[in-house]
């Protein structure tokens, strides 16, 4: 069951963390890390932001294992999708 203390405070903190990360992602975009590291950094920041939203706003932290499994399975689905298609393109010698 959901906890009885329905406080808004943690959400405010998450919101400001997300603001901060948005500023960070713009900031690092001005730095040339070279290929492919610029993308890696941008992706990493986006993943952190996404995890914050999923864990706190979407209450996955503290929800049933079933919800966690369904989140995990969609991530696995995406990984399969990307990895198999992209390995084909890499093997076909694109960039």
């Amino acid at each position: 069951m959901a906890e009885h203390n329905h406080s808004l405070k943690p959400y405010v903190m998450v919101l400001f963390a997300l603001f901060g990360l948005t500023a960070l992602t713009v900031g690092v975009a001005y730095v040339d890390f070279g290929h492919p590291w610029s993308d890696v950094v941008a992706l990493a920041i986006a993943l952190v932001k996404a995890s914050l939203v999923v864990a706190f706003f979407m209450h996955v932290k503290g929800s049933t294992s079933m919800v966690k499994i369904s989140v995990a399975s969609s991530i696995v689905g995406v990984l399969i999708f990307f990895m198999i298609i992209l390995t084909d393109y890499m093997a076909r010698g694109f960039s």
Partner: peptide, 21 residues
């Protein structure tokens, strides 16, 4: 079932590597 779709594309120009996998 999610890992085998490329066997429809052996002669469609997918990479030899992918075809093998």
């Amino acid at each position: 079932g999610f890992l085998v779709w490329g066997h429809h594309m052996f002669v469609s120009g997918e990479s030899a590597y992918s075809a093998l996998v």
